[in-house]
Amino acid sequence: KVMEIKLIKGPKGLGFSIAGGVGNQHIPGDNSIYVTKIIEGGAAHKDGRLQIGDKILAVNSVGLEDVMHEDAVAALKNTYDVVYLKVAKP
């Protein structure tokens, strides 16, 4: 199931950690970017929809399929206060 989640960045950013990407696979044979941690009190935690194990398909208009881990981190960092995440639920 794919959904779009709109998050408003807090003082600590979006409030979640990711793993995965080309050269840094979270699941062997899979280059996808996965949510590995939700920080308590952060934007994602308060919103409640993003969960550990969700796959991040895109940030705003930037696709995160088959990208390097660093590029995924940069895509999440290089955002304004309002961030749209395209997410696939497991």
Rank of each mutant, 00 (worst) to 15 (best):
L57V: 13
K6L: 04
I5L: 09
Y84G: 11
D66N: 09
G21T: 02
E70A: 15
A44M: 02
G20K: 03
K55M: 13
G63N: 10
G21E: 02
L85K: 00
S17L: 11
P90C: 08
L7K: 01
K12A: 05
M68I: 15
G29R: 07
I8C: 09
G20C: 02
S17N: 15
S32T: 05
N78E: 12
K55I: 12
A72N: 01
V87E: 01
L85P: 01
I33A: 02
I18M: 13
N60P: 00
L76R: 01
V82H: 14
K55W: 03
N24G: 06
G41E: 09
K1W: 03
S32M: 05
G42K: 04
L14C: 04
P28K: 15
L76C: 07
V35S: 01
I18S: 03
A19I: 05
A88D: 14
F16N: 01
N78K: 14
A74N: 11
I8V: 12
P90W: 07
P11L: 10
E4L: 09
K37H: 12
Q51R: 10
V83H: 04
P90E: 11
L7E: 00
G23M: 05
K1C: 08
H69W: 07
V59F: 03
D71S: 13
V83G: 03
G53L: 04
G63F: 11
H26R: 12
P28A: 08
A72Q: 01
L7H: 02
Y80R: 10
L14S: 03
K89M: 07
L64A: 03
S32G: 05
I33G: 01
K9W: 04
G42V: 01
V59W: 03
K6V: 07
P11I: 12
H69S: 10
L64F: 15
D30K: 04
A74Y: 11
Y80H: 09
L85Y: 00
I56F: 02
I39P: 07
G42A: 10
G20D: 02
G15L: 02
N60F: 00
G53F: 04
G48S: 08
G15A: 03
D81F: 07
R49W: 04
K55C: 12
I27G: 05
D30V: 04
L14D: 00
V2H: 05
A75P: 02
I56S: 00
T79K: 12
A19Q: 12
V59S: 03
G63W: 10
K12F: 06
K37C: 15
K89N: 08
K6G: 05
N24E: 15
G13R: 04
V59Q: 01
H45M: 15
G41S: 10
L7T: 01
M3S: 07
L50H: 00
G53Y: 04
V67L: 10
K89C: 08
S32V: 02
R49G: 09
P28W: 04
G48Y: 02
R49I: 11
A19M: 11
V2R: 04
V82Y: 10
D71C: 11
L85F: 06
L57N: 04
I56P: 00
S17G: 12
I56N: 01
G20M: 02
A88M: 13
D71P: 03
H69F: 07
D71W: 07
K86S: 12
G15E: 03
G23P: 04
Y84H: 10
K86L: 07
G23N: 06
V73S: 10
H45R: 09
V73K: 12
Q51D: 10
D66R: 10
K77D: 13
I18T: 07
Q51Y: 05
L50V: 09
L14F: 08
Y84P: 04
K12Q: 06
I18D: 00
K37Y: 11
V35M: 02
G10L: 05
V22W: 05
I38Y: 00
G10D: 15
